[in-house]
Simulated assay, not measured.
Amino acid sequence: MNDWTKKGFSIRNGSQSSGANFIIDWYSSKPLRPLFQAVMVGGLGAQAFSFTTEGIEMERMSE
């Protein structure tokens, strides 16, 4: 991917779980600090909600 590009994903889970956790494994030949963001939207009847969150960096665990 080039600089300032984006990649969108839509993940549908029919289990009606109360949350989601994702680990994004990425690589770059250049030093950089990418920004990972998520948007959650939903609704029930006439009420709707949405929120956004940003990913946090985690240290890689040795295998």
Rank of each mutant, 00 (worst) to 15 (best):
M1I: 05
M1T: 09
N2M: 01
D3M: 09
D3T: 09
W4I: 05
W4A: 06
W4G: 05
T5Q: 11
K6E: 06
K6A: 01
K7T: 11
G8P: 04
G8N: 05
G8T: 12
G8I: 05
F9W: 15
F9S: 08
S10W: 06
I11C: 04
I11Q: 04
I11Y: 10
I11G: 00
I11P: 00
I11S: 02
I11A: 08
I11L: 15
R12L: 14
R12I: 09
R12G: 10
N13V: 12
N13E: 15
N13W: 08
G14S: 12
G14P: 05
G14E: 13
S15V: 02
Q16G: 08
Q16L: 11
Q16S: 14
S17W: 08
S17D: 15
S18W: 13
A20V: 13
N21W: 09
N21D: 10
F22C: 10
F22Y: 15
F22I: 15
I23W: 07
I23E: 12
I23D: 09
I24C: 06
I24F: 11
D25G: 03
D25I: 10
W26V: 08
W26Q: 08
Y27P: 03
Y27T: 13
Y27F: 14
S29K: 09
S29M: 05
P31E: 01
L32N: 10
L32C: 15
L32M: 14
L32E: 11
L32T: 12
R33P: 06
R33S: 14
R33N: 14
P34R: 06
P34W: 04
L35R: 07
F36M: 10
Q37R: 12
Q37S: 15
Q37W: 09
A38V: 15
A38Q: 09
A38P: 03
A38S: 15
V39R: 01
M40D: 05
M40N: 06
M40L: 15
M40T: 10
V41H: 02
G42T: 07
G42I: 10
G42S: 08
G42L: 07
G43P: 03
G43M: 04
G43E: 00
L44R: 12
L44K: 13
G45S: 04
G45M: 03
G45Y: 05
A46I: 04
A46N: 15
A46P: 01
A46K: 14
A46R: 11
Q47G: 00
Q47P: 04
A48R: 00
A48I: 03
A48W: 07
F49M: 10
F49Y: 15
F49A: 11
S50F: 02
S50M: 08
S50K: 03
S50E: 00
F51M: 03
T53N: 11
T53D: 08
T53H: 08
E54F: 13
E54Q: 11
I56H: 06
I56P: 01
E57D: 13
M58N: 07
M58E: 15
E59L: 09
E59C: 01
E59F: 03
R60E: 12
R60H: 00
R60M: 13
M61T: 13
S62F: 06
E63I: 04
E63G: 03
